[in-house]
Design a protein around this nucleic acid. Structure first.
Lengths: 167, 167
DNA sequence: TCGACTTGCTTCGAATTCGAAGCAACTGCG
DNA sequence: CGCAGTTGCTTCGAATTCGAAGCAAGTCGA
């Protein structure tokens, strides 16, 4: 015994639950909009957006996967779909023969442009509607260090040892 | 031509991206911990937690689905797994013959107790580590109204009409 | 009471997801 | 050069997800 009660503060719990619920609801809404406006899944949209944002319009597979927090195999699948739809191309990297460079096509940019206004509208209407400009800046200021912290924390070292011999 | 650029502020974009990335990373980490500690998926854990939190230890299917932001059919599947594992029971509701009441069992509570400390540890270590107590309260204060707003906003009315008549 | 509509859950099929395993290309060290 | 280990991507199988369709029970108005 003697372990401190393992629960989080009420404020922490509230923040945690709200975070989960807010992003779940937001994700659902966004997914629906993307599906209707341009027949894209959220992942596909994220990939296109990331590629469109890049100066060269291209990224390596692994960087894409890390960027959107996605499994390698899942990425292969989704990029395959995007390629089949003509929205991206896959070319072997000149440097590393095993590396694949994914590049957004003009059609991809067009599609992105088609869905983007609606996307922005949904995010603005759902997430930012109840927040003042100042609130948004505060929120961004809170989340940025968390993101950095998570990025720099190894995925599983956080579970050092769990045993509840309990008896 | 002529349409105002539909993008969000830099601050909004940053907050939005960070929100997505933070929750994605958090979810992955939590899922891994739950899998290792008690062979539960995140949804299953959320369901057990919600049931365990309830005074009666039970909820209707629909309320559970709404609570965790999940599809009805997916819930049927997951509750089926939980039932097969002996962590919950399903009984027809006395009032509404068509309603199913899901109740957590003692084994369910035990399992919940097994994974909870590790869960709290992961969430605390990843999400709250870089945040002061004050930060957490601020965050909770920002997210709560957003959650309320999202709850009260009908899922699809936000997409009044998607058409880019464009020409 | 009857009939249309709604509500609550499940079944079904298709799509998506992940991790493990496999394969090819690189890197380091002798 | 040649071998062990790493890295990058894909293939594979199993599990999970969703929406549509189906079915039973409940509700409302005439």
């Amino acid at each position: 015994m003697s372990d401190a009660p393992p629960s989080l503060d009420p404020a922490q719990l509230g923040a945690y639950f709200d975070l989960i619920e807010v992003t779940s609801l937001l994700r659902h809404a966004v997914e629906q909009q993307l599906r209707e406006a341009g027949d894209l899944s959220y992942v596909q949209f994220q990939l296109l957006a990331r590629l469109g944002d890049s100066p060269s319009g291209s990224h390596r597979m692994t960087d894409l996967a890390d960027g959107v927090v996605y499994s390698r195999s899942g990425l292969t699948y989704q990029v395959g779909l995007l390629e089949k739809a003509g929205l991206v191309t896959r070319t072997p990297s000149p440097d590393d023969e095993r590396s694949t460079t994914v590049t957004i096509t003009d059609a991809g940019r067009e599609r992105l442009a088609e869905v983007l206004p609606g996307h922005v509208e949904v995010v603005g209407g759902l997430l930012f509607e109840p927040l003042s400009r100042e609130d948004v800046e505060t929120l961004a200021g809170l989340l940025a260090p968390v993101r950095e912290h998570m990025r720099s924390t190894p995925p599983r070292s956080a579970t050092p040892r769990r045993r509840t011999t309990g008896g």
